[in-house]
């Protein structure tokens, strides 16, 4: 009997008698899949390492206390850009949060099963990946052109438009996870839909909705393209009315990074480190809070 003849002792038992072509194809897949994963991890750490080395050596107290230097002037910091970025980002989130949460609520609580809600939900996902520079162009024609001046408001609106679909999507997803028995219990007590939504459903989905807002925050904090033609950028303190250009970190980094002045380049690295660390921290916190990935 053939079956009785034992395999050579040195053949790995897992493989037995497998055609070389099959074995090689399998080996290629395993090696390349592992290698590709390794490459992506290496790229992440390479980027982080670059930021730590270049940005870390450029960080100093001046970065947080002095305003951005003009062309050719010595020293300087980023304090006006950091403050401007904070204002724009928080304003953007402040606008996007109520609209996004309410729209997400409509999709789940009122529009479930309706064609309108399905279409809005679908187009919201398209808006989620729309090129951010076009949102900048849109806000330019909508706000900057009629007002005749660049403004922080225009920048905040552009950021809000980018944050909006993120918040709508996560809110809708999270509300969808709330068991309908909760809503039915609320309705059985005689509460109208609005009350059930505000007092029961929102509370049940609170952690998820907050995560969505954090993810939106992480998304817009580093956005550069939509600010180019809206908030613009400059090397001064912005006016409290936010009219005229408002200095902000991403555009400052963009303008300083490849500039001919050494102190500008140093500041660009410091800014890049600050912004990346902030964003990665926000997204880690958000992901940890939710333990569910919403990259899209």
């Amino acid at each position: 009997m053939n079956a009785a003849s034992p395999l050579p002792a040195d053949t790995p038992p897992a493989w037995g008698r497998v055609r070389a072509s099959r074995r090689i194809a399998d080996r290629i897949l395993k090696v390349s899949a592992t290698l590709f994963s390794l490459i992506s991890v290496v790229v992440l750490f390479w980027i982080l390492g670059m930021l730590l080395v270049q940005g870390g050596t450029s960080l100093s107290l001046d970065v947080f206390t002095k305003i951005t230097p003009g062309p050719g002037s010595e020293g300087g910091g980023l304090v006006n850009a950091i403050a401007g970025s904070l204002v724009l980002t928080l304003l953007g989130i402040a606008v996007a949060t109520p609209v996004g949460v309410l729209a997400g609520t409509y999709l789940v609580e009122y529009g479930r099963g309706s064609i309108l809600a399905a279409v809005i939900g679908f187009l919201n996902d398209v808006l989620l990946s729309a090129p951010s520079i076009l949102i900048g162009l849109f806000v330019y024609t909508l706000v900057v052109q009629p007002m005749g001046t660049y403004s922080g408001w225009a920048g905040a609106i552009a950021l809000a438009i980018i944050a909006l679909p993120v918040i709508v999507r996560t809110t809708a997803d999270m509300l969808g996870l709330v068991p309908s028995t909760l809503r039915e219990a609320g309705a059985a007590l005689g509460a109208p839909t609005s009350l059930v939504t505000q007092r029961v459903t929102w509370r049940a989905a609170k952690a998820g909705i907050v995560t969505g807002i954090l993810l939106a925050l992480a998304r817009i904090a580093g956005e550069t393209a939509p600010l180019l033609f809206t908030a613009l950028n400059n090397n001064f303190w912005f006016s409290p009315s936010l009219m005229g250009g408002v200095s902000n970190l991403p555009v400052t980094i963009f303008q300083f990074a490849s500039a001919p002045y050494e102190n500008w380049r140093q500041l660009a690295w410091a800014g890049a480190l600050i912004i990346t660390v902030t964003i990665l921290l926000i997204s880690i916190v958000a992901r940890y809070a939710l333990r569910k990935d919403i990259v899209r």
């Binding site: 992506s40 992440l44 992480a218 393209a225 890049a272």
Partner: peptide, 20 residues
């Protein structure tokens, strides 16, 4: 860890990719 690293790559701002 690998899944987290890949997701963090998505969070890195576009301008940082530009500088890298």
């Amino acid at each position: 860890p690998v899944a987290t690293a890949v997701e963090l790559l998505a969070a890195v701002p576009s301008i940082i990719y530009g500088m890298w």
